[in-house]
């Protein structure tokens, strides 16, 4: 197989792996832009993954699973909101607590419900999100019509068709939703009244308050959006990328999304770039288990650790000046 096609395939896999990160990163974006640190992304992904997989397994409907997954994530967001907005608690502690809770409760509930060692039954058919074949893309029906395997068909296609069929087409609906969320988030944040107020509340809530707008309502709204987006991340993980819930399947994606958020300087379009980079690294690690550099073999463990190493590098400040929303992490108390 030629190099071009290989790169496309890695990019394709990178896009799929970036999708949960992108949802979570945008969730963090809305939350932190409103001045609420959301270290609990990880936990929200996990509960959403579990709920969506469990409901999809029981009912056989992935759409019901999706709704319940989002509901679970929003519930966690609501708890975070009550703790940090209404009761002005420490946002980091609340987030960490939710992560622990998610980590324990998902396995416990899965075991009690399905007795399969803390996982849900594998999802099949309507219980999963299936790849969508875009118009004019090469797919199974084309292969059957031509009488050759799909592999061969794509191999023979022109480069544009290759990119279209491999990279752009053939993802589940949620991947396209995630991509759509990027311009949508940008528009909401930077072109609407709601976005202006939301950004203001993360920078200087007192300015919003004295302008006669409720800081509390805005922050709860941001929590609801973050909960929904984070829920989609978990749903995709369990019903699109995977086929069921397994213990700790979020695997630090919530934290990586936060690193990507810093990398992206709290902006939606760079968030797409940052999460795609992390997705690519994961895809490369998956594809090349051991890279042989003429006598020296890079071990698979190193490859798999790459996204996490990059996270550390980013957080250590190698990305230049990245200024967080000024009021981040501070509960709003009216001044006397």
């Amino acid at each position: 197989m030629d190099l071009f096609l290989t790169i496309i395939q890695i990019a394709d896999s990178g896009l799929r792996l970036a999708t949960p990160l992108l949802f979570a990163c945008l969730a963090g974006l809305f939350s932190e832009r409103a001045g609420i640190f959301d270290i609990g992304l990880e936990g929200k992904i996990l509960v959403s993954a579990f709920m969506s997989a469990a409901i999809a397994a029981v009912t056989g409907s992935v759409w019901l699973g999706l709704l319940c997954g989002i509901f679970a994530s929003i519930s966690f967001s609501a708890v975070h909101g009550i703790a940090s907005i209404t009761f002005r608690g420490n946002q980091l502690i609340s987030g960490v607590a939710l992560n622990f809770l998610a980590s324990g409760i998902t396995v416990l509930a899965a075991q009690a419900w399905f007795s399969q060692g803390g996982r849900t039954p594998p999802l099949m058919g309507e219980g999963r999100f299936m790849p969508i074949e875009l118009p004019f893309a090469l797919g199974r029906s084309d292969a059957e019509a031509a009488g050759v395997p799909l592999r061969v068909l794509i191999d023979q296609a022109n480069p544009i068709q290759q990119i279209y069929s491999e990279f752009i087409s053939g993802h589940t609906i949620l991947v396209y939703v995630a991509l759509l969320m990027v311009p949508l988030s940008w528009f909401v944040l930077f072109r609407t009244r709601f976005g202006l107020r939301l950004r203001a509340v993360g920078e200087n809530p007192a300015a919003v308050d004295t302008a006669g707008v409720s800081v509390i309502k805005l922050r709860y709204a941001s929590m609801a959006i973050a909960g929904t987006l984070c829920g989609l991340s978990g749903v995709y993980l369990a019903t699109g990328l995977g086929a069921g819930f397994i213990k700790e399947m979020s695997a630090g994606r919530g934290y990586i999304a936060l690193a990507a958020l810093i990398f992206a300087k709290w902006k939606p379009v760079p968030a797409l770039g940052a999460t795609f980079l992390f997705g690519l690294l994961e895809a490369i690690a998956n594809r090349y288990q051991n890279i042989d550099l003429g006598g020296f073999v890079i071990p698979v463990q190193f490859m798999q650790a790459l996204p996490y190493i990059l996270t550390v590098v980013i957080l250590a400040g190698f990305v230049g000046k990245s200024v967080a929303p000024k009021a981040g992490g501070q509960p709003y108390v009216k001044e006397r």
């Binding site: 609407t192 009244r193 709601f194 976005g195 920078e203 200087n204 300015a207 000024k326």
Partner: peptide
Amino acid sequence: HFKLVENFSVLENVILGVEDGAML
């Protein structure tokens, strides 16, 4: 102590809270 959003423009600060309609 001014109630201004530092990384907003003058205009954005002026309309904050009294925008006309949902679009900026």
